[in-house]
Write a protein that binds this DNA or RNA. Structure first.
Lengths: 215, 215
DNA sequence: TAAAAAATGTGACAAATGTTACTTTAGTTC
DNA sequence: GAACTAAAGTAACATTTGTCACATTTTTTA
């Protein structure tokens, strides 16, 4: 595992020491749910390794993707909710084996005034998540499913650092709140345009794909 | 005007004094843009009177509504962006004559460690705005336009404390990123159901309307 | 008050997406 | 390898939303 100061270069050494001394490091297997909708949050989450997925569950169990969290990032929901012991409005799940750090709430409040770097880190986290949500809103409000699919695949590929996407069309449909048939149709079109190739449970993005639809 | 301590009961008296001494109170006429997309933010906004509207502008000038801000609330975007002198990603506009307080950034940072009540107020602001965005995402992701329209009208009515809505169908269409004809159609249906009555530039919500579609 | 402008109504149609009911294909298990 | 199962393909159709082209009504302005 990378040392913490490499993972969180923004944080001052004294703070990193406190973090190491006081928070619990946990290894999570892939596809485990860390936080459920309605659950009360007792500690803040920092991602050390792996990838977490933040999503909203709909009535039928569909997992509508909001965004991914990468090493060095913190779960904004947990930061906001933890300090007030509020119920989470979203689900958090590991998409691969991940290592997370759980910081007790009381310390967070202290650190806020004690460490300027923590204060800025938290603000930066809020800002980034806000922007992520704005981007998401833009997409679902202004774009059609074909563009949203491309955006989704790009994001997935980036979060998993791979051009190979191992998901069924059904899973993708769930995350975009669409239906399998629609996603299959759109993927076929992209395949015809030679932007990707399809096989069972895998989508292989070609180089041209990433040139498509900037932002 | 209401005294500040009534408007912001969460904030401790010493802080309120500092706010009064150091921030600029400004009266804004209706329909004035306070912050534009791309603009750098030099101070945080607190709403003292009136209503502000936070929206995203699309290519054609449509004003896609995100949420309203009421007296006692703060603009989360300004809180986040101000501390880093970042460019705003949204527009802020007064929907009626409003009074706002502009707090210089440097003070915000100081207050954060000096006044617990400020710290909690800011966190609470983030939390509320986050939830507002989540609700919005739920609506545009999971609901059809008819439900979104009802939700929109309810929110408008609540923000303006009136059952009379003075907007053209075109304006509503813009805020929902739809088209006038669609909104007219849906409004006609609601009129036929006797949930509201229509006339030029006004929609009058009837009592039954508010019973419709809880949440 | 006539003319212009803005808002709304309307019907026909197009496009995007969702749904249904299958078939086909690929992988897994017995 | 036969039987089963999950994933993907497909075609026909329904629904929702968007678009176009005008007509009608209401309000404003010259």
């Amino acid at each position: 595992m990378q040392p913490l100061y490499k993972m969180f270069p923004q944080l001052e050494p004294a703070l990193l020491q406190e973090i190491e001394a006081n928070s619990i490091l946990k290894t999570i297997p892939a596809d485990e749910i860390l936080i459920r909708t309605g659950q009360y949050i007792k500690s803040a989450l920092l991602v050390v390794e792996g990838t977490l997925k933040i999503f909203r569950e709909n009535e039928d169990g569909g997992e509508f993707l909001m965004y991914y969290l990468q090493p060095g990032e913190a779960c904004a929901i947990s930061l906001v909710c933890a300090s007030k012991m509020e119920a989470s409005k979203v689900m958090v799940k590991s998409v691969e084996e991940s290592v997370i750090m759980m910081v007790p709430i009381q310390l967070m409040d202290q650190w806020m005034s004690k460490y300027k770097s923590w204060y800025y880190y938290v603000l930066e986290t809020y800002r980034n998540r806000f922007e992520e949500l704005l981007l998401l809103i833009d997409h679902i409000a202004f774009r059609n499913m074909d563009e949203r699919l491309i955006f989704y695949l790009k994001r997935y590929s980036k979060a998993h650092k791979s051009n190979q996407i191992n998901l069924s069309h059904q899973q993708i449909a769930d995350e975009l709140n669409s239906s399998r048939e629609v996603i299959s149709r759109l993927l076929k079109k992209l395949e015809q345009k030679k932007l990707l190739s399809l096989s069972r449970n895998t989508i292989e993005l070609k180089d041209d794909f990433h040139k498509e639809l900037m932002n």
